[in-house]
Amino acid sequence: MNGQGFLGLPVAETAQTWLRRAADILLAGAALFLLAPLMLLITIAIWLESGQPTLFCQTRLGQGGRRFRMYKFRKFHADAGQAGCPLTLEQDPRMTQVGRLLMKTKLDELPQFWNVIKGDMAIVGPRPESLAFADCFHNGWEELLRYKPGLVGPCQIIFRNEAAAFPKGADVNEFYRTVVFPLKARIDLDYFRSRSLASDVVIMIRSFLAICGWASVASAGLRQVERRA
């Protein structure tokens, strides 16, 4: 015995990988089943306010730099397209009234449970980055691409109110590259280098609390960005 498991990984690490994948499928499947009525209501609300399509699909960077299509409920007007700023800002004129509610509650993320079922994403992982910021993965930050992107994670909790972090009048794309992205990358790497199944469960619980408005968690990212701005 050489202590090696699937793909040459240590047996313990391979077991955790399989357990996480099994848990992802179970949790995502249960969420899609239980939340189907809510997702139907959201679909109808989007359609009544601004028509089709009700889903927004965007290419994101996945594990190993592989590209995949990530799904969200559409927050912007149907004619907004994918042009313009790749970041969602406070009081963004592209956003619908339903979209503002979805952004506040994070319910626009629900279709990503399908990405989890497909294997593009995990329940817990770094947030998948848009191609507009693919150039940020250098000088050590490319290590983030070792991990499967997730629906929730430390940065999704800490930066729940990320849109409020951008200074008025600033070049938001440049500010994201030089301040926000490095800060998020450092936090994620600190976590995922030593993660465990138990810590992932804690992340899921904290994510739920942050969505429910636990201020001490939800405002932490804004405070950290302000210190570095």
Rank of each mutant, 00 (worst) to 15 (best):
G3Y: 14
Q4V: 15
F6S: 12
G8W: 12
L9V: 14
L9C: 11
V11G: 01
A12H: 01
E13I: 15
A15N: 04
A15W: 02
L19D: 03
L19F: 14
A22Y: 07
I25F: 09
L26Q: 02
A28N: 06
A30D: 02
A30Y: 08
A31V: 15
A31N: 07
L32I: 10
L34K: 07
M39R: 05
I42M: 04
I42L: 05
W47C: 02
W47H: 03
L48R: 13
E49D: 15
G51M: 03
G51K: 08
Q52V: 03
C57Y: 03
Q58L: 02
T59M: 05
L61S: 03
G65A: 11
G65V: 13
R69N: 01
K72L: 02
K75I: 14
H77N: 08
H77A: 03
A80G: 04
G81I: 09
L87W: 10
T88G: 04
L89N: 06
E90R: 06
P93N: 00
P93H: 00
R94L: 09
R94G: 09
T96H: 06
V98C: 04
M103P: 04
T105G: 05
T105S: 07
L107V: 11
L107S: 10
V116F: 12
K118D: 15
G119W: 07
G119N: 00
D120P: 00
R127Q: 05
R127N: 07
R127K: 15
P128V: 05
P128D: 03
L131K: 03
F133G: 03
A134H: 09
A134Q: 09
D135V: 09
C136I: 10
F137M: 01
N139Y: 13
E142W: 06
E143F: 10
E143N: 05
L145C: 02
L145W: 09
R146Y: 14
Y147G: 04
Y147D: 06
K148S: 05
G150S: 06
G150W: 00
L151W: 05
G153P: 01
Q156V: 09
F159K: 06
F159C: 01
A164T: 15
F166M: 00
F166A: 02
F166V: 01
N173S: 12
F175C: 00
R177V: 11
T178S: 07
F181S: 00
P182D: 06
A185F: 00
I187W: 04
D188E: 11
D188C: 11
D188P: 03
L189H: 08
D190Y: 11
Y191E: 09
Y191D: 01
Y191N: 04
S194V: 15
S196H: 03
S196K: 04
A198D: 14
A198T: 08
S199L: 10
V201F: 14
V201K: 04
V202S: 08
M204N: 03
R206Q: 15
A210V: 14
I211N: 00
C212E: 07
W214C: 11
A215Y: 12
S216I: 13
A218R: 13
A220V: 09
A220S: 08
G221V: 01
Q224D: 03
E226T: 04
R227K: 11
